Amino acid sequence: METFTEWRTWERARADLAARSLGPDDLVVLDRAVDAALRWHGDQRRPTGAPYAEHLFEALEVMVRGAGVTDLDTLVAVLLHDVVEDTDATVSDVEAEFGPDAAELVDWVTKPPAGGQGRQAKRVAKTAYLRRLREAPPDAIRVKLADRVSNVQTLDRMPPDFQRRYYLETVTYVMPLIELLGDDTGGWFSGWYTSWRRRFGHLG
């Protein structure tokens, strides 16, 4: 199972993107997206304690180095995919800085607030969100799949009860999204998740 942990910093990611023939204008836009993501996420950390930016760069690496996607709006959305859900930023803020197409992708992958208090309400809201993704445009599905690759590629570092719950959620709701792509990226994601499922199949 291939893992995506080489792009730990924007400098490293940017150099690789430049080598893959992204033009200077596109790189300037991505510079701004990284600045915005770092500004909005601030000092947030991943559950492992690592800086949150590492997750964003991993998801970007999955999209580019893995799936081979270099569409600018999609890459901007990968970098900003959690800002509306996890920070004070709004979809309107994203649209004002990066345009309606990137903002729409971020909106699709943003989990809405739970309608009530407690774990059950959150679970119901998340399930509804994951089911709704089947109606999302292909680029939004790619963003979600890249995001989840970053989150599950080191699933064994998480607490055991979380591992099993997240594994089942991924198999039940996220992996079926791949069949909606029907192109080369769908083939790549299918291959990656198949190898991942073999690696963590004991959790099922």
Rank of each mutant, 00 (worst) to 15 (best):
F98V: 03
V109C: 06
K111Q: 15
E61K: 01
R12L: 14
P51F: 10
D35F: 07
P51S: 14
L80P: 00
A19C: 12
G68K: 09
A102G: 12
A53D: 12
D25C: 11
A59Q: 05
V106G: 04
R45S: 12
G116S: 13
V62Y: 00
E61S: 05
D16V: 15
S21Y: 11
D88N: 07
V76Y: 01
L60W: 01
M63V: 09
G115A: 14
G42D: 06
K111G: 02
D31V: 09
F98Y: 08
S21C: 13
D73P: 08
D86K: 14
S21P: 06
P24Q: 08
A103V: 01
P47T: 09
P51D: 10
P113Q: 12
L72S: 04
T110Y: 05
A36Y: 10
V83F: 01
V106A: 03
P24F: 06
V76E: 02
T110S: 12
V64G: 00
A36M: 06
G118P: 04
A13P: 02
V106N: 02
A67N: 09
A77G: 13
T48F: 06
E97A: 15
T48Y: 07
T74V: 14
V83K: 02
L38Y: 03
D35L: 12
T48M: 04
P113D: 14
T90S: 14
A67G: 08
L105R: 05
H81Q: 12
A18H: 07
V69T: 11
P51I: 13
L105G: 01
P51C: 11
L75K: 07
V29L: 14
V69C: 14
R32M: 04
P112V: 01
T110K: 06
V109W: 05
V69G: 03
A114Q: 05
R65Q: 12
T87K: 03
R32H: 08
Q44F: 05
L38R: 15
E95D: 11
S92T: 10
R20M: 08
G68T: 07
V64F: 06
V69I: 15
L56R: 09
A102R: 04
D26T: 08
A18M: 11
D101T: 15
V28C: 11
A19T: 13
M63K: 03
Q117R: 11
D82Q: 05
A13M: 07
E104Q: 12
H81I: 01
T87F: 09
